[in-house]
Design a protein around this nucleic acid. Structure first.
Lengths: 225, 225
DNA sequence: AAAGAAAAAATTGTATACAATTATACAAAT
DNA sequence: ATTTGTATAATTGTATACAATTTTTTCTTT
């Protein structure tokens, strides 16, 4: 099975989303179709498909006059997203504990070790990547398709707010937190794994908030028109 | 402000979605664009926008060859959806308890009374409607935008599985369950309201499952290709 | 000069034509 | 008879032209 062809709408979707997440497009900025189609060098037809997707995910907001504007995001929304994440990923951890084979546990142990190393040597990039791997693997074996789908949608929104945070150091106790979750999974203790995961997510939220407080405004973008 | 114009893509989206939810389109059935554009008497352009939306919500699944097929849904997925609902609506109830004004409580009390009447007289249609009103009102005052958005997405999926259930009677203790939630809100007892809501959702799931057991297969549609 | 109306420009919404891809039918070869 | 290749048809993907709507500009009237 060769790699199935990349549809223009899909690459457009990805590119525009990245521009929104990483601030190349500012919140409340209105984007026009022609402008984007020129920028990405594609026609309006696949572009509009991409815009439709982003509208569904509420990265773009359709105004009553038909114009699209980039969504703003508040600190409160980020907190809500992490709250939801803690619930969803909690369930995932619980189910993962029930489903995990010995092979799965081996893989997870390896990821955790890599995470520990990355932290030890200060490889931030890798550290974040392995952290994601850990969560993604649990999602995979949990079998909770809907939860995973919803998670993927809201995670990107939170990333928008705190991507810059992930770059600079001191993820206080993330390694230990992951280890604790894995402990629960090893012991097939779903309730334990769920609780550990919830705590972990909420602790991550705290880290994010702290970084935010240090830095800029409590809000990206304006709600006022 | 006059009612903003209905876009063809939006009505197409709604119509196709209804056909999927209420079984006019069968699970795993493949739908073609031309067929739909003739059926709805619109051109392919707005139709494809609608299909894109339904694909994002996973009512339609894009196959590797580009064809779209109607999603199937398993009993397990329905159970997962109710599990997620219980968490999300639990949070909503908790926040609603914190935010509810005395006016809000008055409105909720009225809705509950109508619900009680509808149940008493066996008006199933109205009973379901008032139940939805109650939940929607809590969602409104909770201020949890993301949770509400996610809820609206998954609810429709569950409806697909159990719409036929809602028609025939005996919602055992729904009235009392709603009353209990309202009790928590009146007392500004968020934890109580949250728990009551969670129990309520899970009890509804039980009702649905029981009906399903009585009736047909445990699964709508085939996963086998 | 200000307010309103009319005209022009810009932008989104829809339809259709064409290109690329995928599925089907049928014939030839083994 | 089964398979393989090729031609044909069917279907999706993309581009573009046109229609409808909204915004901006201009002009007129007071």
């Amino acid at each position: 099975m060769v790699p199935k062809r990349r549809l223009t709408k899909d690459v457009a979707y990805y590119q525009i989303k990245q521009k929104i997440i990483y601030g190349e497009f500012n919140p409340d900025e209105v984007v026009r179709e022609e402008q984007l189609s020129e920028m990405l060098e594609i026609s309006r037809t696949p572009l509009r498909q991409a815009l439709q997707m982003l509208e569904m995910e509420e990265f773009l907001i359709r105004q009553p006059n038909g114009r699209l504007k980039v969504a703003s995001i508040t600190k409160e929304e980020v907190e809500e997203i992490f709250q939801i994440r803690s619930m969803l990923e909690g369930s995932i951890a619980r189910n993962a504990a029930a489903n995990a084979s010995s092979d799965d546990i081996k893989v997870l142990t390896e990821i955790l070790e890599k995470l520990r190393q990355a932290y030890h040597f200060g490889y931030t990039q890798e550290f974040v990547a392995y952290g994601n791997d850990f969560h993604d693997y649990l999602a995979e074996i949990s079998g909770l398709k809907t939860s995973v789908k919803l998670l993927s949608m809201i995670k990107d929104h939170a990333n928008r707010y705190c991507h810059f945070v992930s770059m600079y150091g001191k993820w206080s106790n993330q390694v230990d937190e992951h280890a604790l979750i894995l402990e629960g999974i090893k012991n097939k203790d779903g309730a334990f794994a769920e609780l550990a995961m919830k705590k972990h997510i909420l602790s991550t939220l705290k880290d994010v908030i702290n970084r935010i407080e240090d830095k800029a405004s409590s809000k990206i973008g304006n709600t006022v028109d």
